[in-house]
């Protein structure tokens, strides 16, 4: 009973945030709308039975990546972000294909109703996920660990760069 109620609330929240995005002129406010969206997305993951993804989304995405972006937003002069393409023709030329893309995606997903999909696991827990990762995807987890060293080096370089700049 609680699930449909919460999901409808979340859908309304996302819609409201999407409409709020059109009203904002300043970049920082638009960024804040995105930030709230990402944190809410983390809570939506909770309804999909994966607490670990929720924690990962909030710690890594909202907590590290977007902070890094905000750091950058303040490094540049504010005039840089005022270049805005206000011509309606360009907006239509670009927005209509993307709208079409999303609508067809939604249509395909809504009509795609294959219930005889073979389920490989029915338990949703962190330990189950860890078992799957380490037993079936050792190469993927190795790649993941390797890739995660890049942002660490990158952040270090960023901090050094912003120090020596001024």
């Amino acid at each position: 009973m609680a699930r449909p109620l919460f999901m409808s609330i979340f859908l309304l929240l996302f819609l409201a945030l999407f409409l709020l995005l059109f009203r904002q002129k300043k970049v920082v406010y638009q960024f804040l709308v995105y930030l709230v969206m990402m944190v809410l997305l983390g809570i939506v993951y909770l309804f999909l039975g994966s607490e670990f993804l929720m924690a990962f989304q909030i710690i890594v995405y909202a907590g590290a990546i977007l902070v890094m972006f905000l750091f950058f937003l303040y490094l540049y002069p504010e005039e840089e972000f005022k270049i805005q393409d206000m011509r309606n023709s360009t907006l239509i030329k670009t927005l209509i294909p993307s709208l079409l893309f999303v609508i067809t995606l939604i249509l395909i997903l809504f009509t795609f109703d294959v219930r005889e999909y073979e389920a490989s696991a029915s338990v949703y827990s962190v330990k189950e996920l860890a078992k799957l990762i380490y037993n079936q995807y050792p190469l993927a987890i190795f790649l993941l660990a390797f890739i995660l060293t890049y942002p660490m080096i990158a952040i270090y370089l960023l901090m050094k760069g912003s120090e020596s700049d001024d």
């Binding site: 607490e51 670990f52 929720m54 909030i58 907590g63």
Partner: peptide, 19 residues
């Protein structure tokens, strides 16, 4: 289930207030 991770998440979101 994920108490420790929630504390880490809360600590990382509190930074936004300061910035």
């Amino acid at each position: 289930n994920i108490g420790i991770l929630l504390i880490l998440a809360g600590a990382s979101l509190a930074v936004y207030g300061i910035i």
